[in-house]
Amino acid sequence: MSLFGFALKPRRSKSAQTAKDRLQILLAHESRSGSKEPDYLPKLQRDIIEVIRKYMKVQDDDVMIRMERENGLSSLEINIEMSADEKKGESAKKKD
C-alpha cells in the first residue's frame, strides 16, 4: 500500500505451491472413479483383514487403509485398531 511498498515488502513464500500441495493430498483421498486413485484399495483392505484375522480378532471397521501421494512419494498407511484383550493402539506403517 505504501508508496515504496514494492521495495519494502518481504518476499513471501510461493502460496501457489502450497495450494498445489494441499490439493494433491486432498484429491488423492477424495478418489473419483476412473482416476489415478488405485481401485484395488477396497480389495486390499478385505485381504489384509483376512490375514490379520488368522492371528487376532478384528472387526471389519477396525482396519483403516489410506494411500497418500506427495512429491512423487506414495505411502500406504494401514491402521489396525485392536480390541481390549489384544495389545492396544498398535499400528503398522509401510512406505514404498
Partner: peptide, 12 residues
C-alpha cells in the same frame, strides 16, 4: 479445483 475433481468423478 477440488469441486472440478468431484464433478469429473460424477461425469465418469
Amino acid at each position: 479445483v477440488r469441486d472440478s475433481d468431484r464433478v469429473l468423478g460424477l461425469l465418469a
